[in-house]
Each structure stands twice: as C-alpha cells, then as structure tokens.
Amino acid sequence: MYAEGVPCWVDAQLPDVDAGRRFYGELFGWTFEERREDHGDSVWALLDGEPVAALAHKADGRMPTVWTVYFATPDAEATARRIRAAGGQLVTAPTPVGGLGVAALAADPEAAVFGLWQPGGHPGFGVRHRPGAFVWAELYARDTEAANTFYGHLFHEALFGPGAAPDFGRAPVADVFPEMMPPHFLVHFGAEDCEAALGAVSRLGGRVQAGPFTASYGTVAVVTDNQGASFALLER
C-alpha cells in the first residue's frame, strides 16, 4: 500500500484506446488486460504481468487527451476537503470505481490537474522505478513556492517528512516549455536508452516536444504519443 501523497497510479484519457495499445505496447513492451466491467471502456497496461497504468476512452471530445497522475490517500473525501480549504478545487468528486477504490480529480490553485486514489482492491502500481514503468511526476508551475506550500500542506509527510522519497518534483513552466503553457503535471516513464526511445516514439507516430535535457533526477525528453497525450521519458 502506498503512503499518502505518493504517486500510486497513472491513466491516459485517449480518443482511441486500441491505437494507444499499439503505441504503448510497442514503445514499452506493455501487454493489456480488459477492465470494461469495472470502469467504462478501459484497459490496464501490464509490464511483466504487473499493472503499471490504465488507458481509458475519452468519453467527451472536448476533454483534453492527457496522462494523469494519482496520489494515494487513505480518505479521498477528507483530502478533497483539504484541497478546497487550501485554495484548490475538485474537478470530479470522489467516486467509487467498482471494488477497486475511490477516484477523484482535483486542481491546485494554478489549475494543474491531478488525481486522488483511495485504494480498495487495487493498491496502485504493481511495479515502478524501472524502464517501461512510472518513475517520476514533475509539476511545472508558475509559482513553485506557492506549489510547495499547497502540496506541502496537502502531503507534508510524503514530501518533507523523514525519509521522504515522493517521486514528485516542482519546476517553473518556463524551464522547459513556452511561458504561455499552463501549469501541469508531466508523468515520466523509465527508459533504458532515451535516444533509442525517442526514435521509437517518432516511428510510432508520436513527436518530440523537448530534450533530451539533464534534470536533477536524470536525462529527460518530453514527447507526445500518436494521439497528442504528453509524457516524458526518463533515463537514469
């Protein structure tokens, strides 16, 4: 079970889940398990048989095509109240997902969207911190001090407590993106060889947005998949 405030799951909202299966299956070696009985039209991505992500059909074409990171919480309703009290807002109220757990979407005071996951039958990642799996989430913010205050209030132990290893960093938007880019979270997946992975992204119909560049946590490249969802590749 993941501690409160630790990234524990990611999903992608895509126009075409089958196209997503082909792209990510080829890029990361993922296999897929149907989850239609639990949460609409979605599949779980597996790496060596362990769950690493979900691909879900974007029900509303007006919604963005995005990867979302979910932070673990023992009580999604209580965390939602703290988010509102700290100046954030709820995008989607805590909602049971079959017997798997309770999910919510929220936005921080700069409108960067993130998820909450209160585990039930599904604790989150079965494997992480390796090529083809989640390794990091970076928040690109306008005001990193304000972000540290907001998330420090929300997830203090995970970010700043003894032995904290949150897999969650904060950086100014303009460090990597044009200044007009809105604040957002960027999900990072591990890559054994970042340059080789970039070649695969391009071959599969994706594109490179930025990098590779050196960050404090490794070599990073920002890409989009063949449907426009942005994510990062991280070589350590």
Score class of each variant (00 low, 15 high):
Ala210Met: 00
Thr92His: 04
Gln227Gly: 08
Phe213Met: 14
Leu186Tyr: 01
Glu4His: 10
Phe160Thr: 07
Gly40Asn: 06
Ser216Tyr: 02
Asp167Val: 00
Gly228Leu: 03
Glu33Gly: 04
Ala141Glu: 01
His57Met: 13
Phe23Glu: 05
Trp30Val: 07
Phe71Lys: 12
Glu4Pro: 11
Ala158Phe: 01
Gln89Asn: 09
Pro51Leu: 14
Val135Gln: 10
Leu14Pro: 05
Asp48Thr: 09
Phe168Gln: 01
Glu157Val: 10
Val176Pro: 01
Gly115Arg: 03
Gly161Tyr: 09
Ala147Glu: 04
Leu46Lys: 14
Leu47Pro: 10
Lys58Gln: 06
Cys8Asn: 15
Thr31Ser: 14
Glu37Gln: 15
Leu233Thr: 01
Gly88Lys: 03
Asp225Arg: 03
Val187Asn: 07
Leu186Arg: 12
Gly61Arg: 09
Ile83His: 10
Ala164Asp: 08
Glu145Asn: 04
Ala12Pro: 02
Arg236Thr: 14
Thr79Ile: 00
Pro212Ala: 07
Arg81Thr: 08
Val10Cys: 09
Glu77His: 12
Phe125Trp: 09
Trp44Ile: 13
Ile83Asp: 07
Pro166Ile: 07
Gly5Val: 03
Leu234Trp: 01
Leu100Phe: 01
Gly5Gln: 00
Gly20Gln: 11
Val223His: 06
Met1Arg: 05
Ala53Cys: 05
Pro119Tyr: 02
Phe168Pro: 00
Tyr217Met: 03
Tyr140Asp: 04
Asp11His: 02
Arg130Glu: 15
Asp16Glu: 14
Leu139Asp: 02
Leu116Gly: 06
Asp167Gln: 14
Phe189Tyr: 14
Gln209Asn: 11
Asp108Gly: 10
Glu138His: 02
Trp117Pro: 13
Asp38Ile: 15
Leu154Thr: 08
Leu154Glu: 05
His156Tyr: 06
Phe134Lys: 12
Val176Asn: 07
Glu37Phe: 11
Gly120Gln: 03
Tyr24Ile: 10
Pro162Phe: 07
Tyr24Trp: 12
Leu154Met: 05
Ala221Ile: 09
Glu4Lys: 11
Pro15Ile: 11
Asp225Phe: 04
Phe150Met: 10
Gly29Tyr: 08
Leu159Phe: 08
Leu46Thr: 13
Glu50Pro: 06
Gly228Ser: 03
Arg35Val: 08
Gly228Cys: 03
Pro131Met: 03
Pro15Met: 10
Gln118Arg: 09
Val17Cys: 09
His184Phe: 11
Leu198Lys: 12
Asn148Thr: 13
Gln227Glu: 10
Asn226Gly: 02
Ala133Glu: 08
Gly98Asp: 03
Ala107Ser: 13
Asp16Ile: 06
Arg130Pro: 01
Val113Arg: 11
Asp11Ile: 09
Phe125Cys: 04
Phe28Ser: 11
Arg236Ala: 13
Gly49Phe: 07
Glu77Thr: 12
Pro109Tyr: 00
Glu192Asn: 08
Thr79Ser: 12
Phe185Glu: 05
Phe71Leu: 14
Asp175Tyr: 02
Thr219Val: 15
Leu47Thr: 09
Gly218Arg: 01
Asp193Gly: 08
Gln89Ser: 15
